[in-house]
Amino acid sequence: MGKITFYEDRAFQGRSYECTTDCPNLQPYFSRCNSIRVESGCWMIYERPNYQGHQYFLRRGEYPDYQQWMGLSDSIRSCCLIPP
Rank of each mutant, 00 (worst) to 15 (best):
S35F: 01
P49Q: 06
C79Y: 01
F30L: 05
L26G: 07
T21P: 15
Y51H: 15
T20I: 02
R48H: 10
N25K: 14
D74G: 01
C23T: 08
N50R: 09
Q52G: 14
I36M: 15
F30W: 01
Q27P: 12
D74N: 06
L81A: 12
Q27N: 07
Y17F: 07
T5V: 09
E8T: 07
E8I: 04
Q52V: 12
R15N: 12
S35N: 00
G2C: 11
D9C: 13
G14Y: 02
M1K: 11
C42Y: 03
G61S: 05
K3C: 12
D9P: 00
G14E: 03
Y51F: 10
L81R: 09
C19H: 08
T21S: 10
R10K: 12
G2Q: 10
C19D: 02
D22I: 03
F30G: 04
Y17W: 07
M1W: 03
F6L: 06
D9I: 03
W69C: 15
S16Q: 07
Y51P: 00
C23H: 13
D65A: 03
L81Q: 15
R48A: 12
S16I: 11
D22A: 03
S75W: 08
L26R: 01
G53S: 14
Y56C: 02
S16G: 06
M1V: 06
N50A: 12
I4H: 01
Y7W: 11
K3S: 11
G53I: 13
L81N: 10
Y7Q: 01
L58F: 15
N34D: 10
Q13F: 04
N50F: 14
R10G: 14
T5K: 06
P24T: 10
T21K: 07
S35A: 06
Y7K: 01
S35R: 01
G53R: 10
N25H: 08
S16L: 05
R15T: 15
Y51D: 04
S75L: 14
K3D: 08
P49F: 09
Y7M: 03
E62Q: 15
F12G: 08
F6C: 02
S40F: 10
P49D: 14
L81I: 09
Y46E: 00
F6Q: 00
Q13L: 05
F6P: 00
R10E: 10
M44T: 03
Y51I: 03
C23L: 08
T5D: 01
S16Y: 14
K3L: 09
E8Y: 04
G14M: 03
E18N: 04
P28R: 02
Q52P: 00
T21I: 04
